[in-house]
Design a protein around this nucleic acid. Structure first.
Lengths: 209, 209
DNA sequence: GTCTATATTGTGATAGAC
DNA sequence: GTCTATCACAATATAGAC
């Protein structure tokens, strides 16, 4: 049973790699089995279908990304700290996961109907509950900061969209960015390093009165 | 031959719809044929393989998005005008193309080796040429603005990444954003409308000294 | 250019031994 | 739990008539 979970994890790792490189339907069960060093039949033994295997991978990856960010945004932490924390979280994890954001966004478009149940199983709460909790917390904080004259008025939706866009997009569009910027070996890593130091300030500065 | 191009376009439209909804390998030739109201064999007559059909769709879509933006960024236009123009371009086109950014980004990750040749065929110039032209033009403009004390120093790469991220990401991650924001029918459109008016200012404000 | 019919291979999934 | 062998069908691609 240590073997059991070890094999299961090996399959998940192999599947993750294949799915991120080819997409769910582009990946081949045979390739995953080979990479996990097991037989194809074993994939079905553990996950029944390709679709469920993809779901397991998707869930495992999302669990690393969504909960910490939602928790941070919905917390009592001061607004500027939240911004720094979210930037930190994303720029820490995403460099280790090339292809993940693009894969996730594409799959979300291909199966939007699965999303609500997915988030629910992920957080233990209905999406609406999370949505409104984060939403209200940010609404209140932004209103208070505006009232105190520390930031300009901004719609909470735009605040969230801007922050998350700046964190995730460069990783999702990495091949295009590298091309546009004439990147060579290692340039992207340096770009990200620079970004880790400056992104939060860039964002916060745009909120100044 | 008016028939010829008309049929070809009908196939491209049908393929576009299928690819954006299911991805290249997830889409079925039969579905495309049905939607275009032709037989499957005709798809191969016009495009030989599914892969070439996908490439044709990809190219046609990218041709609408990349050249105008690269041209704007590489032009002699003042920096703040460039920002407003790029925001305008993207927020004008992307609402009509749900699923396109996510599809494009995923496919770029699945076939990064095709990208250089693709950009070359698209713009008639090598990616490096475009890259450096846009790059140098922006480098010079940013340096001049900094020198004049009108903006804070910022690396050109961060400038470009930030601008493009803010424009494209919300459309690429639309399903997730809608969920996080508790959107109902029409809410996303209102969000985009608001964004069209405020995004350029948000970005430019972050550059202020 | 467009169709029907068919070839052929790829691929997810299962049966059953060990 | 893991394997070998195989099924069943889905899906791309082609041949050839009209």
């Amino acid at each position: 049973m240590s073997d059991e979970t070890e094999t299961r994890d090996r399959i998940l790792d192999a599947a993750r790699s294949a799915f991120l490189r080819h997409g769910t339907s582009g990946a081949r069960m045979q390739e995953i089995a080979d990479a996990a060093d097991v037989n194809k039949a074993l994939l079905h033994y553990y996950f029944r279908t390709k679709d469920r295997l993809a779901e397991a991978v998707f869930t495992r990856e999302a669990r690393r990304l969504l909960p910490p960010v939602l928790e941070t945004l919905g917390s009592e932490m001061p607004l500027d700290e939240k911004v720094r924390r979210v930037v930190e979280l994303y720029l820490e994890v995403l460099p280790e996961a090339p292809g993940l954001p693009a894969y996730v966004m594409a799959e979300m478009h291909y199966h939007p109907e699965r999303l609500p149940a997915f988030v629910e199983s992920l957080t233990g709460a209905t999406p609406q509950a999370h949505g409104t909790r984060v939403r209200r917390q940010l609404d209140a904080q932004i209103a208070a900061e505006v009232e105190a004259g520390r930031i300009r008025p901004i719609a909470t939706e735009q605040f969230m969209a801007n922050l998350i866009s700046l964190c995730i997009f460069p990783f999702a569009a990495r091949p295009m960015l590298q091309l546009m910027m004439g990147h060579r070996e290692g340039d992207f890593e340096a770009f990200v390093e620079d970004r880790r130091e400056r992104l939060a300030d860039f964002f916060l500065r745009s909120l100044r009165p």
